[in-house]
Design a protein around this nucleic acid. Structure first.
Lengths: 329, 329
DNA sequence: TCAAGGTGCTAATTCGAATTATTACAGGGT
DNA sequence: ACCCTGTAATAATTCGAATTAGCACCTTGA
C-alpha cells in the first residue's frame, strides 16, 4: 500500500524544508513570517499535484483542532426501526456541519455493552473529534458526568439535568408545549385530564409531566398521571381529555374509542406529546405538537461551535409548534 | 478547563518514567521487557485513582492507522427525499464498520459546487480516512480516475467502468436480474417488449439495458428501447410487456392503464427495474427485483478492508432477488 | 567598510504515547 | 578485584504537523 504523503515528502519535492510547507499550507503571514511568492507557488503546485492533505491526527495532537465533529448515538443510527426518530436530527446536523466546513464522525465502533453503547470504553475514541453531539432519548449519567468533568466539548440534543455541572444542550421546550395543549383544552371546556406515560426517567418525559402539572394547577382542573391506560380506565374515571407521551399510545386510544362507537373528539379528546419512539399508525391525525427535530440538530452543531470557540456552556430550548389535528374538541 | 492527564503526569506520581507507565498500561511482557510486580502495582494504583485513559490521538499517530472509514456521497445523506435511497446502504455500511471496529466519517465538509459535491476540491479531506466508500448513482469520472491514479484505497458501491484502471466496486448484477425478468415474461407468452428508461449514462442504467438486449436477442423476440413512454405509445406499438428503469414510471403506467379500464396484468404486463430515485406510490405491487442495498453496503466495507490489508482490487456483483408482485401475467 | 535593517527560509522543539536501545545495579563465580 | 549474567528501569527516538527563535543573505546609508 502506498505510504501516505507527509509534509517532509512535499518539502523534498519542492526543495524546501518541512517548516516552509507547513507555513505555506496554513497561509501564515503573521508574526514576521514571510515566504517568497515563487516559493509559495512552487510548494502549492506540489501540494495540488499530489493532493496532499495534512494528517488530521498529527494536526490534532499539536493544536487540538481537526474540523471533525463527532456524533454519538446510544443506538445504531441507520437501522430503519429508529430511522424516523433520528433522521430529522441528523439532517439538521449534517446541514449545519456542511455550513461549518466540518466532517462528521459517526462513532460506530463504540462497543455495545448490554445493548447500550457507552461513550467511555477501554479505547474511547471520542477525543478523535474536536467536539461531539450526543443523541439519544436518555444518556447515561455517568458518561455525562465524565464528559463534563474531563472538559470534553460536547452538546447534548435534548435537555439534560446537571451531571456534576451544567450540561450543554439544545432541547425542546416540552414544558411550554404541554402547557399550551392543556390551555387549549381548558378553553374548550375540558376539566378532567389524564397524563399517560412514564413522566420520569428521561428529562424529556419529566419535562412533559411537569408542564402538565403546572397547567392543571394553574387552571385548577383535575389532572392525574398514570403510566399506562386502557380505554375503560379512562372512561370510568370520567376523563374527557387524554395526553399521551407516546404517539402510538394516543393513536391506539383513538382507534379503540372509535371501535367502541365513540366519537373522537366528540366523546373523548386525545392529544399526543410527540414522542415517537415506536412506529405509530399515520392515519390518525392526532392533536399535539411538532418537535423541531431538524432545527435542534442544526442548533446543536452551532452550539458546539460556540463551545469550541469560546468555551461557553450553551443551554437552549426550542419551541414546539402546535399541530391542530382532529382529536381535540 | 482541567488539562487532561498525560503519561508523564502518571509517571511523576508513581515515581517512574513515562516509558514504564506505557509498558504497564499495555501489559507488555514480551521482548525482554520486565516490570517488577510492586512497581506495576504502584503504577496501576495511580492509574486507577486518577482514571487516566491514554490519549487516542497520540496513540493513532504512532500506529499509522486511524480506524476511520470515509463515506463520500455526492449529495447530503440524510434528507428525507433521498433517505429511502441511501439508508439501506448506510445501514449495511454502519453494521460492517462496527464489526471492523472502525468509525465512519461523513464528508460533509465537501462543499457543493453547482449542486454536486466534488471529491477533489482545493482542500480535499478524503485522505483523512484510512479508506473510503463511494456512494451515488453516478460518480464523476475524473474524480474516479484521480482516486485510481493516486492509489487512494476506496470501494465504489455500484459497478463502475474502468477509469484509467480497474475500479474496485461492489455492485448489483442488473444484467442477470433484467434477463431473468424477460425470461419469465417470455415463458408466460410475451413476445413484444419495450424498455423504458435512460439505458445509458450511469453504469447501473447501461447494465439493465444490456441485460434486456441480451435477453430479447436470446429469445428472438421484439424488444425496443425508449427514454420515456406514455400509455398510448405502448398500446399502439402492440407491446404486451413493459420494463421501466424507474419504479415511479412503472407505477404511473399501471395506474394509467387501470384508469382506462384495462387490466394489469391481463391486458398489459409491467415490470420495474428497481431504480427508486424518485418517490413512488407504494400501493402498486409491481413485479420486479429487489436490489440488495444493505448487503452491498456490508460487502463494500468488507471489500475496503481487503483493499487496506492486501492492496487488492475487489470487484463483485451481488444477485438481485426476484419480486413476484402482481403486474406480470 | 561596516553596521543597521529587512527578507526568506530553516533548525529545533513541541504535542502524547509506543518502542528500541541502553544503562544501572545486584549477586554469583573465578 | 574482575567478569558475567540476569533483572529492572530509563533515555532516546519515532510518528506528522505547527511553531518559534534565529541564521544567512542582501540592500542601504553613513
Amino acid at each position: 500500500m502506498a505510504k501516505r504523503l507527509t509534509q517532509q515528502d512535499i518539502a523534498r519535492m519542492a526543495g524546501v524544508s518541512q517548516a516552509t510547507v507547513s507555513l505555506v499550507l496554513n497561509n501564515r503571514t503573521d508574526g514576521g513570517v514571510r515566504i517568497a511568492p515563487e516559493t509559495r507557488a512552487r510548494v502549492l503546485e506540489v501540494i495540488r499535484r499530489t493532493g496532499y492533505v495534512a494528517n488530521p491526527i498529527a494536526r490534532r495532537l499539536h493544536d487540538q483542532r481537526n474540523r471533525i465533529l463527532g456524533v454519538f448515538t446510544y443506538e445504531a443510527v441507520f437501522p430503519s426501526t429508529r430511522a424516523d426518530f433520528y433522521q430529522p436530527f441528523l439532517e439538521g446536523i449534517e446541514e449545519q456541519a456542511e455550513v461549518a466546513g466540518c466532517d462528521l464522525l459517526l462513532f460506530t465502533s463504540a462497543k455495545a455493552t448490554e445493548g447500550k453503547r457507552r461513550i467511555f470504553s477501554d479505547d474511547s475514541r471520542i477525543r478523535l473529534a474536536d467536539g461531539c453531539v450526543l443523541l439519544g432519548r436518555s444518556i447515561d449519567r455517568d458518561d455525562l458526568a465524565q464528559l463534563v468533568s474531563e472538559g470534553i466539548p460536547f452538546v447534548s440534543i435534548g435537555r439534560r439535568d446537571d451531571a456534576g455541572g451544567p450540561v450543554p444542550h439544545v432541547g425542546a421546550d416540552y414544558v411550554s408545549a404541554v402547557r399550551n395543549l392543556v390551555d387549549r383544552a381548558v378553553a374548550l371546556g375540558h376539566r378532567e385530564f389524564v397524563y399517560v406515560g412514564a413522566g420520569t426517567g428521561a428529562e424529556s418525559s419529566a419535562d412533559r409531566l411537569r408542564g402538565f402539572k403546572q397547567a392543571v394547577a394553574a387552571h385548577r382542573v383535575a389532572g392525574t398521571h398514570v403510566q399506562f391506560a386502557g380505554l375503560d380506565q379512562v372512561l370510568d374515571a370520567g376523563i374527557t381529555a387524554v395526553l399521551t407521551e407516546e404517539v402510538s399510545d394516543g393513536a391506539a386510544l383513538v382507534l379503540a374509542a372509535r371501535e367502541r362507537g365513540l366519537s373522537v373528539p366528540g366523546d373523548l379528546s386525545v392529544m399526543t406529546l410527540g414522542a415517537a419512539t415506536r412506529p405509530a399508525p399515520d392515519d390518525v391525525a392526532l392533536t399535539g405538537f411538532r418537535i423541531p427535530r431538524r432545527e435542534m440538530g442544526r442548533r446543536a452543531v452551532q452550539a458546539l461551535t460556540e463551545v469550541l470557540e469560546h468555551g461557553t456552556t450553551p443551554r437552549e430550548l426550542l419551541a414546539c409548534e402546535f399541530v391542530a389535528g382532529t382529536t381535540l374538541g
